[in-house]
């Protein structure tokens, strides 16, 4: 990882001899933005969401014992989301056996539909960990524009990949990436 100090030296070779000037400000700004955006160590933020029994759960506690995690945003009114999660549900047992992956499905259904989440999940027989984000707090914290939106978290808890929308067959790419992660390979 590029450090701020390294970055400043690289962007501005005269760094150590210069006074605090406008160019340091510019370099600082460039370094601040470039390091922060390029940073790969983003984790799942700690946000309070709801469990399906109505109690509160903090997403900082999402863990999978060093194995990869798929974090998927969906809603009961979003048909591509349901297609994706239903397609994965058919092969989920195999995925878990092969890679140890855990899928965490975050429903963004609000008051109007959130009571439908548990019956839908149970009705479909999904074996995912499901939480509800009724006022979009986690959605906002992770910068999600639209559902479905999928994040892939590696064994160390870092978010290493994301994807917006769903088409038939997207799950094959997802599985390939999960397989690499579970073998400890980098996917970047």
């Amino acid at each position: 990882m590029v450090s701020y100090l390294d970055c400043m030296k690289y962007k501005n070779p005269n760094y150590f001899t210069m006074k605090i000037t406008k160019s340091i400000f510019t370099a600082t700004l460039i370094c601040l933005v470039s390091i922060s955006v390029a940073q790969s160590s983003k984790t799942i933020p700690s946000i309070d969401v709801k469990k399906m029994d109505g109690t509160t759960f903090n997403t900082g506690d999402i863990k999978n014992g060093g194995k990869p995690i798929i974090l998927n945003f969906w809603a009961t009114w979003c048909s591509p989301c349901k297609r994706e999660l239903n397609n994965i549900a058919e092969v989920y047992d195999d995925w878990v056996d092969e890679t140890g992956v855990k899928l965490v499905a975050i429903s963004i259904d609000d008051t109007r539909n959130m009571a439908k989440v548990a019956p839908y999940v149970n009705g479909k027989g999904w074996e995912y960990d499901v939480y509800i984000d009724p006022n979009g707090d986690l959605k906002r914290a992770l910068g999600v524009n639209n559902v479905p939106h999928t994040f892939l978290v590696d064994g160390e808890g870092k978010i290493v990949w994301q994807h917006n929308s769903y088409s038939e067959g997207d799950e094959d790419e997802l599985l390939e990436l999960v397989e690499k992660l579970s073998k400890g390979e980098s996917i970047e």
Binding site: L32, I35, S36, Q39, S41, K42, T43, P45, G143, V144
Partner: peptide, 9 residues
């Protein structure tokens, strides 16, 4: 910086 995280959309 190295502990902080910047996110957005």
């Amino acid at each position: 910086l190295n502990r902080g995280q910047i996110r957005g959309n």
